[in-house]
Write a protein that binds this DNA or RNA. Sequence first.
DNA 1: CCCATTTACTTGACAACATGAAATATCCAG
DNA 2: CTGGATATTTCATGTTGTCAAGTAAATGGG
Lengths: 142, 142
Amino acid sequence: MAARIDPLTREVVDLIGTVVSRYHSEYDAAASKHQLTGAQARVLGLLALEPLPMRRIAEQLKCEPSNITGIVDRLEARGLVERRPDPADRRVKLAAATAEGRQTYERLRSSLEFAREPLAQLSAAERTALRDILRHMLGLEA
Amino acid sequence: MAARIDPLTREVVDLIGTVVSRYHSEYDAAASKHQLTGAQARVLGLLALEPLPMRRIAEQLKCEPSNITGIVDRLEARGLVERRPDPADRRVKLAAATAEGRQTYERLRSSLEFAREPLAQLSAAERTALRDILRHMLGLEA
DNA sequence: CCCATTTACTTGACAACATGAAATATCCAG
DNA sequence: CTGGATATTTCATGTTGTCAAGTAAATGGG
């Protein structure tokens, strides 16, 4: 079954696995530099863009909504996030990053070495090629 | 600080983030199809290649050795892995995949849709280009 | 309008994963 | 042989994840 995969494809898959693993190390290290876990950093990253109902956060993170309750609880206890009522639907609670939360996330993001170190080795042409291939691969034929 | 990153690089970073997230979803889904968690699947994948001391597993997974004890315990309870003494050093326990463990991992690996679906959209030329760029990016100038 | 159903969120019980500190057994250098 | 380092486990604790049950509010058919 696995023999169906040609060597080139398998090598690319393994390389992607390596990228994934390195990305995670960097991300978690950057998060913990700011006393955040990976999950907390990801939620804060979503909320830094716009306030979201708990349910939407769960969809983005592909987990159960009940899980989000605890993560937002911890972020809220540290003043990085707040819960607001949704004027349009009283069942909904909107989680929103506070000013401090946005600031923290921006610092975290800019400390993501992954964004620079490995990519810095690529020429502009390589970066463009990589962008196009990844877009194609992800079906984002914009 | 974050403003130092040019738009192209930022887009590539975001695309990689998307790839990472998709890779994880696929990997965890494939693992749970075989009643394994992501961490268990990763350990089983390492042991499918060769037996390893607990400490080496922890290094590969970048976590504390005490954490590996529990993961190997659960794999061992299911007969996918066994602990053997290291003849050269009686402090060391070698974790080794059983025949069933290797079989399970091979099935898991071949069910990783990620290996096919998104990559299938790429031409051979694109795959080669992607491989070269990723190698370059990871500093594997083989 | 009213009631049944659905939806959003929280709570509680529980398992896996992760860390750090302490205990045990073994190795190794002096 | 002894003292210090190493490999593993155990324990305490915290975070993340699931699922089931509960509350509150929206919604739609009669």
